[in-house]
Design a protein around this nucleic acid. Sequence first.
DNA 1: CTTGTTTTTGAGTATACGCTCTATTTTGAG
DNA 2: CTCAAAATAGAGCGTATACTCAAAAACAAG
Lengths: 182, 182
Amino acid sequence: MARYLPGLQTRDRILESTTWLLARVGLDGTTLAAILDRAKVRSGSFYNLFESKDEVILTVIGEAINAVDPHPDGEGKDTVRELVDAYIEFITGQPTLAQIYLQTAVGGALNDERLAHRFLSHHETRLTRLTDAIRREQKLTKRQARAEAELLLAGLNGLAFHRMLDPDFDVAGRAEELLARR
Amino acid sequence: MARYLPGLQTRDRILESTTWLLARVGLDGTTLAAILDRAKVRSGSFYNLFESKDEVILTVIGEAINAVDPHPDGEGKDTVRELVDAYIEFITGQPTLAQIYLQTAVGGALNDERLAHRFLSHHETRLTRLTDAIRREQKLTKRQARAEAELLLAGLNGLAFHRMLDPDFDVAGRAEELLARR
DNA sequence: CTTGTTTTTGAGTATACGCTCTATTTTGAG
DNA sequence: CTCAAAATAGAGCGTATACTCAAAAACAAG
Protein backbone atom coordinates (compact mmCIF):
# COMPACT_ATOMS: atom_id res chain seq x y z
CA MET A 1 0.00 0.00 0.00
CA ALA A 2 0.95 3.57 -0.56
CA ARG A 3 2.78 5.19 2.29
CA TYR A 4 5.15 7.65 0.68
CA LEU A 5 3.96 10.82 -0.97
CA PRO A 6 4.62 9.74 -4.59
CA GLY A 7 2.41 6.73 -4.13
CA LEU A 8 -0.47 8.83 -2.84
CA GLN A 9 -0.10 11.26 -5.72
CA THR A 10 -0.11 8.43 -8.21
CA ARG A 11 -3.19 7.04 -6.54
CA ASP A 12 -4.94 10.37 -6.97
CA ARG A 13 -3.98 10.59 -10.63
CA ILE A 14 -5.41 7.14 -11.21
CA LEU A 15 -8.69 8.03 -9.51
CA GLU A 16 -8.99 11.26 -11.47
CA SER A 17 -8.22 9.50 -14.71
CA THR A 18 -10.82 6.83 -14.01
CA THR A 19 -13.46 9.38 -13.06
CA TRP A 20 -12.90 11.31 -16.25
CA LEU A 21 -13.03 8.21 -18.41
CA LEU A 22 -16.14 6.78 -16.77
CA ALA A 23 -18.06 9.95 -17.54
CA ARG A 24 -16.66 10.42 -21.02
CA VAL A 25 -16.53 6.97 -22.53
CA GLY A 26 -18.57 4.94 -20.07
CA LEU A 27 -17.75 1.75 -18.26
CA ASP A 28 -16.99 0.00 -21.51
CA GLY A 29 -14.41 2.48 -22.69
CA THR A 30 -12.71 2.71 -19.33
CA THR A 31 -10.01 0.16 -20.04
CA LEU A 32 -6.92 -0.34 -17.96
CA ALA A 33 -4.76 0.93 -20.80
CA ALA A 34 -6.84 4.11 -21.02
CA ILE A 35 -6.63 4.67 -17.28
CA LEU A 36 -2.87 4.12 -17.28
CA ASP A 37 -2.33 6.31 -20.30
CA ARG A 38 -4.26 9.23 -18.90
CA ALA A 39 -2.75 8.92 -15.46
CA LYS A 40 0.75 8.55 -16.88
CA VAL A 41 1.33 5.38 -14.94
CA ARG A 42 2.60 1.95 -15.89
CA SER A 43 0.72 -1.20 -14.98
CA GLY A 44 3.26 -2.21 -12.35
CA SER A 45 2.64 0.94 -10.35
CA PHE A 46 -1.07 0.55 -10.76
CA TYR A 47 -1.14 -2.90 -9.23
CA ASN A 48 1.11 -1.74 -6.45
CA LEU A 49 -1.70 0.58 -5.42
CA PHE A 50 -4.91 -1.24 -6.36
CA GLU A 51 -6.04 -4.82 -6.18
CA SER A 52 -7.73 -4.72 -9.55
CA LYS A 53 -9.24 -2.45 -12.16
CA ASP A 54 -12.64 -3.15 -10.64
CA GLU A 55 -11.50 -1.78 -7.31
CA VAL A 56 -10.74 1.64 -8.81
CA ILE A 57 -14.01 1.74 -10.68
CA LEU A 58 -16.01 0.75 -7.64
CA THR A 59 -14.15 3.35 -5.59
CA VAL A 60 -15.01 6.08 -8.07
CA ILE A 61 -18.64 5.07 -8.36
CA GLY A 62 -18.84 4.82 -4.60
CA GLU A 63 -17.63 8.40 -4.36
CA ALA A 64 -20.27 9.44 -6.85
CA ILE A 65 -22.96 7.82 -4.74
CA ASN A 66 -21.74 9.46 -1.56
CA ALA A 67 -21.39 12.82 -3.23
CA VAL A 68 -25.17 12.96 -3.57
CA ASP A 69 -25.56 13.23 0.16
CA PRO A 70 -25.38 16.73 1.65
CA HIS A 71 -24.10 15.94 5.13
CA PRO A 72 -24.10 12.19 5.74
CA ASP A 73 -23.61 12.54 9.48
CA GLY A 74 -26.36 15.01 10.36
CA GLU A 75 -29.54 12.96 10.50
CA GLY A 76 -33.03 14.05 11.35
CA LYS A 77 -32.05 17.68 11.02
CA ASP A 78 -32.18 18.60 7.35
CA THR A 79 -35.10 20.34 5.70
CA VAL A 80 -36.75 19.39 2.42
CA ARG A 81 -35.22 22.48 0.86
CA GLU A 82 -31.74 21.47 1.98
CA LEU A 83 -32.05 17.97 0.62
CA VAL A 84 -33.39 19.18 -2.70
CA ASP A 85 -30.78 21.89 -3.03
CA ALA A 86 -28.00 19.45 -2.25
CA TYR A 87 -29.13 17.18 -5.00
CA ILE A 88 -29.48 20.00 -7.50
CA GLU A 89 -26.04 21.24 -6.56
CA PHE A 90 -24.75 17.75 -7.19
CA ILE A 91 -26.37 17.49 -10.62
CA THR A 92 -25.30 20.90 -11.86
CA GLY A 93 -22.04 21.25 -9.99
CA GLN A 94 -20.66 17.78 -10.54
CA PRO A 95 -22.17 16.59 -13.79
CA THR A 96 -19.45 14.02 -14.23
CA LEU A 97 -20.25 12.20 -11.03
CA ALA A 98 -23.95 12.71 -11.61
CA GLN A 99 -23.74 10.91 -14.90
CA ILE A 100 -21.89 8.00 -13.34
CA TYR A 101 -24.50 7.93 -10.60
CA LEU A 102 -27.34 7.65 -13.08
CA GLN A 103 -25.52 5.15 -15.22
CA THR A 104 -24.96 2.99 -12.20
CA ALA A 105 -28.58 3.14 -11.19
CA VAL A 106 -29.87 2.27 -14.61
CA GLY A 107 -27.87 -0.87 -14.87
CA GLY A 108 -24.35 0.06 -15.77
CA ALA A 109 -22.75 -1.84 -12.97
CA LEU A 110 -25.63 -3.24 -10.99
CA ASN A 111 -24.45 -6.69 -11.92
CA ASP A 112 -21.86 -6.21 -9.25
CA GLU A 113 -23.49 -7.50 -6.08
CA ARG A 114 -21.64 -5.26 -3.65
CA LEU A 115 -22.31 -2.14 -5.64
CA ALA A 116 -25.96 -2.96 -6.25
CA HIS A 117 -26.54 -3.43 -2.54
CA ARG A 118 -24.69 -0.26 -1.70
CA PHE A 119 -26.66 1.70 -4.24
CA LEU A 120 -30.02 0.42 -3.11
CA SER A 121 -29.34 1.04 0.56
CA HIS A 122 -28.18 4.52 -0.28
CA HIS A 123 -31.32 5.16 -2.26
CA GLU A 124 -33.44 3.92 0.59
CA THR A 125 -31.61 6.13 3.07
CA ARG A 126 -32.17 9.14 0.91
CA LEU A 127 -35.84 8.33 0.59
CA THR A 128 -36.42 7.97 4.31
CA ARG A 129 -34.50 11.17 5.04
CA LEU A 130 -36.70 13.00 2.61
CA THR A 131 -39.79 11.36 4.05
CA ASP A 132 -38.81 12.41 7.57
CA ALA A 133 -38.09 15.96 6.47
CA ILE A 134 -41.51 16.17 4.87
CA ARG A 135 -43.23 14.91 7.99
CA ARG A 136 -41.45 17.51 10.06
CA GLU A 137 -42.92 20.23 7.85
CA GLN A 138 -46.36 18.83 7.07
CA LYS A 139 -48.89 16.81 9.02
CA LEU A 140 -49.06 13.66 6.94
CA THR A 141 -49.27 9.97 7.61
CA LYS A 142 -46.04 8.07 7.14
CA ARG A 143 -47.51 6.51 4.05
CA GLN A 144 -48.51 9.84 2.51
CA ALA A 145 -45.16 11.42 3.27
CA ARG A 146 -43.38 8.48 1.75
CA ALA A 147 -45.43 8.79 -1.43
CA GLU A 148 -44.66 12.48 -1.48
CA ALA A 149 -40.96 11.80 -1.13
CA GLU A 150 -40.98 9.21 -3.89
CA LEU A 151 -42.71 11.62 -6.23
CA LEU A 152 -40.32 14.43 -5.45
CA LEU A 153 -37.25 12.26 -5.78
CA ALA A 154 -38.51 10.83 -9.04
CA GLY A 155 -39.02 14.34 -10.31
CA LEU A 156 -35.49 15.31 -9.41
CA ASN A 157 -34.04 12.21 -10.97
CA GLY A 158 -36.06 12.95 -14.07
CA LEU A 159 -34.57 16.43 -14.23
CA ALA A 160 -31.08 14.99 -13.90
CA PHE A 161 -31.98 12.56 -16.64
CA HIS A 162 -33.19 15.35 -18.90
CA ARG A 163 -29.97 17.21 -18.34
CA MET A 164 -28.02 14.27 -19.73
CA LEU A 165 -29.75 14.80 -23.03
CA ASP A 166 -29.63 18.58 -22.95
CA PRO A 167 -26.72 20.10 -21.03
CA ASP A 168 -28.35 23.55 -21.15
CA PHE A 169 -31.48 22.32 -19.42
CA ASP A 170 -32.43 24.56 -16.52
CA VAL A 171 -32.48 22.01 -13.73
CA ALA A 172 -32.64 24.50 -10.87
CA GLY A 173 -35.50 26.45 -12.43
CA ARG A 174 -37.61 23.39 -13.08
CA ALA A 175 -36.90 22.05 -9.63
CA GLU A 176 -38.31 25.28 -8.27
CA GLU A 177 -41.57 24.65 -10.08
CA LEU A 178 -41.51 21.10 -8.80
CA LEU A 179 -41.34 22.32 -5.24
CA ALA A 180 -43.98 24.97 -5.84
CA ARG A 181 -46.52 22.30 -6.73
CA ARG A 182 -46.32 20.34 -3.55
CA MET B 1 -29.18 -11.81 -46.46
CA ALA B 2 -31.95 -14.01 -45.29
CA ARG B 3 -34.39 -15.08 -47.96
CA TYR B 4 -35.52 -18.56 -46.97
CA LEU B 5 -37.63 -19.17 -43.89
CA PRO B 6 -34.88 -20.75 -41.76
CA GLY B 7 -32.78 -17.64 -42.17
CA LEU B 8 -35.59 -15.38 -41.01
CA GLN B 9 -36.26 -17.57 -38.03
CA THR B 10 -32.62 -17.56 -37.08
CA ARG B 11 -32.61 -13.80 -37.38
CA ASP B 12 -35.52 -13.57 -34.97
CA ARG B 13 -33.86 -15.88 -32.47
CA ILE B 14 -30.76 -13.70 -32.55
CA LEU B 15 -32.78 -10.54 -31.96
CA GLU B 16 -34.69 -12.10 -29.09
CA SER B 17 -31.52 -13.42 -27.55
CA THR B 18 -29.86 -10.01 -27.78
CA THR B 19 -32.88 -8.23 -26.30
CA TRP B 20 -32.95 -10.59 -23.37
CA LEU B 21 -29.23 -10.24 -22.72
CA LEU B 22 -29.16 -6.46 -22.99
CA ALA B 23 -31.79 -6.16 -20.30
CA ARG B 24 -30.37 -8.86 -18.06
CA VAL B 25 -26.63 -8.41 -18.18
CA GLY B 26 -26.28 -5.02 -19.86
CA LEU B 27 -24.26 -3.96 -22.84
CA ASP B 28 -21.10 -5.28 -21.29
CA GLY B 29 -22.34 -8.78 -20.74
CA THR B 30 -23.95 -9.04 -24.13
CA THR B 31 -21.04 -10.79 -25.81
CA LEU B 32 -21.22 -12.48 -29.16
CA ALA B 33 -20.72 -15.85 -27.53
CA ALA B 34 -23.62 -15.20 -25.18
CA ILE B 35 -25.88 -14.15 -28.04
CA LEU B 36 -24.94 -17.20 -30.10
CA ASP B 37 -25.33 -19.54 -27.17
CA ARG B 38 -28.78 -18.34 -26.26
CA ALA B 39 -29.96 -18.22 -29.86
CA LYS B 40 -28.53 -21.67 -30.59
CA VAL B 41 -26.61 -20.35 -33.57
CA ARG B 42 -23.00 -20.67 -34.67
CA SER B 43 -20.94 -17.62 -35.56
CA GLY B 44 -20.97 -18.39 -39.28
CA SER B 45 -24.75 -18.21 -39.42
CA PHE B 46 -24.71 -15.04 -37.41
CA TYR B 47 -22.43 -13.25 -39.84
CA ASN B 48 -24.50 -14.52 -42.72
CA LEU B 49 -27.38 -12.46 -41.31
CA PHE B 50 -25.74 -9.47 -39.65
CA GLU B 51 -22.85 -7.23 -40.54
CA SER B 52 -21.54 -7.11 -37.01
CA LYS B 53 -22.45 -7.56 -33.38
CA ASP B 54 -23.02 -3.82 -33.16
CA GLU B 55 -25.66 -3.99 -35.85
CA VAL B 56 -27.82 -6.35 -33.81
CA ILE B 57 -27.43 -4.30 -30.70
CA LEU B 58 -28.29 -1.07 -32.48
CA THR B 59 -31.29 -2.75 -34.06
CA VAL B 60 -32.61 -3.87 -30.69
CA ILE B 61 -32.03 -0.51 -29.06
CA GLY B 62 -33.67 1.19 -32.00
CA GLU B 63 -36.74 -0.97 -31.47
CA ALA B 64 -36.75 0.01 -27.82
CA ILE B 65 -36.72 3.67 -28.74
CA ASN B 66 -39.53 3.30 -31.22
CA ALA B 67 -41.61 1.28 -28.82
CA VAL B 68 -42.00 4.32 -26.60
CA ASP B 69 -44.14 6.04 -29.18
CA PRO B 70 -47.88 5.30 -29.05
CA HIS B 71 -48.81 5.83 -32.71
CA PRO B 72 -45.88 7.33 -34.60
CA ASP B 73 -47.97 8.22 -37.63
CA GLY B 74 -50.85 10.08 -35.97
CA GLU B 75 -49.57 13.58 -35.30
CA GLY B 76 -51.31 16.56 -33.80
CA LYS B 77 -54.16 14.39 -32.59
CA ASP B 78 -53.15 12.80 -29.33
CA THR B 79 -54.13 14.09 -25.92
CA VAL B 80 -51.86 14.54 -22.93
CA ARG B 81 -53.58 11.60 -21.31
CA GLU B 82 -52.88 9.36 -24.29
CA LEU B 83 -49.23 10.27 -24.43
CA VAL B 84 -48.77 9.74 -20.72
CA ASP B 85 -50.65 6.46 -20.72
CA ALA B 86 -48.63 5.19 -23.66
CA TYR B 87 -45.40 5.88 -21.84
CA ILE B 88 -46.63 4.27 -18.63
CA GLU B 89 -47.78 1.26 -20.59
CA PHE B 90 -44.34 1.08 -22.09
CA ILE B 91 -42.57 1.23 -18.73
CA THR B 92 -44.78 -1.30 -16.98
CA GLY B 93 -45.65 -3.50 -19.92
CA GLN B 94 -42.24 -3.79 -21.50
CA PRO B 95 -39.77 -3.30 -18.68
CA THR B 96 -37.05 -4.99 -20.68
CA LEU B 97 -37.13 -2.46 -23.48
CA ALA B 98 -37.70 0.36 -21.02
CA GLN B 99 -34.50 -0.48 -19.24
CA ILE B 100 -32.55 -0.50 -22.48
CA TYR B 101 -34.17 2.82 -23.34
CA LEU B 102 -33.01 4.41 -20.11
CA GLN B 103 -29.58 2.86 -20.33
CA THR B 104 -29.16 4.27 -23.79
CA ALA B 105 -30.21 7.73 -22.71
CA VAL B 106 -27.91 7.81 -19.74
CA GLY B 107 -24.84 7.01 -21.75
CA GLY B 108 -24.78 3.31 -22.33
CA ALA B 109 -24.32 3.53 -26.07
CA LEU B 110 -24.43 7.24 -26.75
CA ASN B 111 -20.87 7.03 -27.97
CA ASP B 112 -22.35 5.71 -31.14
CA GLU B 113 -23.01 8.77 -33.28
CA ARG B 114 -25.94 7.37 -35.23
CA LEU B 115 -27.73 6.14 -32.16
CA ALA B 116 -27.11 9.31 -30.18
CA HIS B 117 -28.64 11.40 -32.95
CA ARG B 118 -31.57 9.08 -33.29
CA PHE B 119 -32.22 9.16 -29.61
CA LEU B 120 -32.07 12.93 -29.33
CA SER B 121 -34.36 13.53 -32.26
CA HIS B 122 -36.81 11.03 -30.82
CA HIS B 123 -36.71 12.79 -27.49
CA GLU B 124 -37.29 16.15 -29.14
CA THR B 125 -40.23 14.78 -31.12
CA ARG B 126 -41.80 13.42 -27.99
CA LEU B 127 -41.35 16.73 -26.24
CA THR B 128 -42.97 18.79 -28.99
CA ARG B 129 -45.87 16.34 -29.26
CA LEU B 130 -46.48 16.71 -25.58
CA THR B 131 -46.11 20.47 -25.80
CA ASP B 132 -48.66 20.63 -28.61
CA ALA B 133 -51.10 18.41 -26.75
CA ILE B 134 -50.85 20.66 -23.71
CA ARG B 135 -51.53 23.78 -25.77
CA ARG B 136 -54.59 22.18 -27.24
CA GLU B 137 -55.98 21.67 -23.75
CA GLN B 138 -54.75 24.79 -21.99
CA LYS B 139 -54.28 28.40 -23.00
CA LEU B 140 -50.55 28.80 -22.53
CA THR B 141 -47.73 30.47 -24.37
CA LYS B 142 -45.53 28.15 -26.33
CA ARG B 143 -42.80 28.74 -23.79
CA GLN B 144 -45.01 27.89 -20.83
CA ALA B 145 -46.38 24.78 -22.48
CA ARG B 146 -42.90 23.63 -23.31
CA ALA B 147 -41.80 24.08 -19.71
CA GLU B 148 -44.88 22.16 -18.64
CA ALA B 149 -44.04 19.34 -21.01
CA GLU B 150 -40.44 19.16 -19.86
CA LEU B 151 -41.54 18.94 -16.25
CA LEU B 152 -44.09 16.24 -16.97
CA LEU B 153 -41.71 14.19 -19.07
CA ALA B 154 -38.98 14.52 -16.46
CA GLY B 155 -41.44 13.29 -13.87
CA LEU B 156 -42.33 10.27 -15.94
CA ASN B 157 -38.72 9.45 -16.64
CA GLY B 158 -38.05 9.77 -12.95
CA LEU B 159 -40.79 7.25 -12.23
CA ALA B 160 -39.32 4.88 -14.79
CA PHE B 161 -35.97 5.39 -13.15
CA HIS B 162 -37.38 4.62 -9.72
CA ARG B 163 -38.91 1.46 -11.05
CA MET B 164 -35.46 0.24 -12.06
CA LEU B 165 -34.48 0.26 -8.41
CA ASP B 166 -37.75 -1.07 -7.09
CA PRO B 167 -39.69 -3.35 -9.46
CA ASP B 168 -42.77 -3.16 -7.25
CA PHE B 169 -42.92 0.61 -7.48
CA ASP B 170 -46.41 1.80 -8.39
CA VAL B 171 -45.60 3.78 -11.53
CA ALA B 172 -49.18 4.19 -12.70
CA GLY B 173 -50.40 5.37 -9.32
CA ARG B 174 -47.69 7.96 -8.92
CA ALA B 175 -48.17 9.14 -12.48
CA GLU B 176 -51.78 9.81 -11.60
CA GLU B 177 -50.70 12.12 -8.78
CA LEU B 178 -48.28 13.74 -11.17
CA LEU B 179 -51.09 14.56 -13.57
CA ALA B 180 -53.37 15.71 -10.78
CA ARG B 181 -50.91 18.44 -9.82
CA ARG B 182 -50.76 20.18 -13.12
C1' DC C 1 -33.83 -35.63 -59.63
C1' DT C 2 -30.96 -31.54 -60.70
C1' DT C 3 -29.10 -27.31 -59.79
C1' DG C 4 -28.16 -22.93 -58.01
C1' DT C 5 -28.96 -20.52 -53.78
C1' DT C 6 -29.23 -20.05 -49.01
C1' DT C 7 -28.01 -21.56 -44.50
C1' DT C 8 -25.06 -23.74 -41.19
C1' DT C 9 -20.95 -25.37 -39.19
C1' DG C 10 -16.79 -24.85 -36.46
C1' DA C 11 -11.98 -24.58 -36.58
C1' DG C 12 -9.02 -20.76 -36.97
C1' DT C 13 -7.22 -15.67 -36.67
C1' DA C 14 -6.13 -11.30 -34.87
C1' DT C 15 -6.52 -8.36 -31.29
C1' DA C 16 -7.42 -6.19 -26.93
C1' DC C 17 -7.84 -6.85 -22.34
C1' DG C 18 -6.61 -7.49 -17.32
C1' DC C 19 -2.98 -8.78 -14.85
C1' DT C 20 1.89 -10.75 -13.16
C1' DC C 21 6.65 -10.62 -12.21
C1' DT C 22 11.32 -9.28 -11.88
C1' DA C 23 14.59 -5.91 -12.06
C1' DT C 24 15.56 -1.10 -11.13
C1' DT C 25 15.06 3.36 -9.14
C1' DT C 26 13.35 6.45 -5.62
C1' DT C 27 12.18 7.68 -1.02
C1' DG C 28 12.87 9.04 3.68
C1' DA C 29 13.67 7.62 8.60
C1' DG C 30 17.57 6.78 11.69
C1' DC D 1 25.31 8.21 4.56
C1' DT D 2 22.84 3.76 4.95
C1' DC D 3 19.44 0.75 4.02
C1' DA D 4 14.96 -1.29 4.11
C1' DA D 5 10.65 -0.15 2.35
C1' DA D 6 8.08 1.81 -1.34
C1' DA D 7 7.36 3.01 -6.06
C1' DT D 8 8.13 2.36 -10.98
C1' DA D 9 8.96 0.34 -15.45
C1' DG D 10 7.77 -2.64 -19.03
C1' DA D 11 8.19 -7.10 -21.18
C1' DG D 12 5.30 -10.87 -21.18
C1' DC D 13 1.24 -14.23 -20.14
C1' DG D 14 -3.33 -16.19 -20.40
C1' DT D 15 -7.78 -15.44 -21.78
C1' DA D 16 -11.87 -13.65 -23.96
C1' DT D 17 -13.59 -11.30 -27.71
C1' DA D 18 -15.27 -10.18 -32.39
C1' DC D 19 -14.87 -11.88 -36.66
C1' DT D 20 -13.37 -14.94 -41.11
C1' DC D 21 -13.56 -18.59 -44.28
C1' DA D 22 -13.90 -22.82 -46.70
C1' DA D 23 -16.59 -26.65 -46.80
C1' DA D 24 -20.81 -29.15 -45.96
C1' DA D 25 -25.77 -29.42 -45.42
C1' DA D 26 -30.47 -27.86 -46.17
C1' DC D 27 -33.55 -25.77 -49.17
C1' DA D 28 -36.74 -24.84 -52.98
C1' DA D 29 -37.74 -23.88 -57.90
C1' DG D 30 -37.85 -26.17 -62.48
